[in-house]
Amino acid sequence: MATEDTDTGPWSDRGFALGGPDELSEREQAAVEACLRALADDEFVLAERYTEWQVRGPTLEGDLAVANIAQDELGHARLWYDLLEDFGHTEPELIWERPPEDFRHATLVERPFARGDWADAVVRGFLYDEFERLRLDALADTEYPRIADRVGKVQGEEHYHREHARNWLERLAEGRGDPDNGHRRVQEAIDRLFPHALTLFVPTAYEPDIVEFGVRPAPLSELRQAWLDEVVPVLEDFGFRLPVAADAHPEAVDTLLPTARGRDGEHTDAWADLHDEFTFTYRQLDRSEAPRLMVDPDDADEGGDHP
């Protein structure tokens, strides 16, 4: 019954198995929240890392583009956190006062960048954006109307991100200039990041409910296979080695996973520092609320963000 619907208009042309935020059972709400936390935290933390390239990008134009992508991702995080606020959570509870171990993002997005390692940003973007497309496609079929309402908006910006990542990947892979640089650095980034990218697909205890209730009808295991089918051949065509074949047995893929898997609250060391940095001013100001500058997403016009 769920049709591809990226229109942000009324939901009336499509039935939903789940109701609004007030109409969910306890189990349904827990599944919706778990799904949203992974979504929101992934986008927020990835954006946080991307902003490190501001004023440090390889060219002025490249700097502007990555800043834009960071803002897009932050905007997406804002949309998803806002849906968690439906359940009574506030922005400080969701971000600024939340202990680091309560964040549910994959470890891929929290890894620090080594100075000047643009290949890391490119590979990370590529691995993440291909995952993000699959996840959003799956969410387009959600049974939860509040998510359905916003998927189209987010999808609208992801195309640029994928183009951006693929174009950079291609140019670095071509190994112009000193071939040792582009190609070697991309290969190193793949070696380092691929296991962390796999944490994007690590299911939480809520996964069976998320699928059963149709919050995200496609299971993560299915998304992972689709993702491997997409990213592995692309990278291999550029002459890169991957730790696993696209058609490897799922158990063989599982063995590549790092110890910390993010989704269960266990993170890599870099996360504590990052968390400490981005909550610094909030703590210094001794705040209990986070100032809003824009109207609530529900009250914003199509694409509008001016009060």
Partner: peptide
């Protein structure tokens, strides 16, 4: 202060300013 901004909206605004 992109990193240190104390709210999502402020972070977006500072990032856009730096950009």
């Amino acid at each position: 202060f992109v990193r240190q901004a104390p709210s999502l909206d402020r972070k977006l605004a500072v990032s856009a300013q730096v950009q």
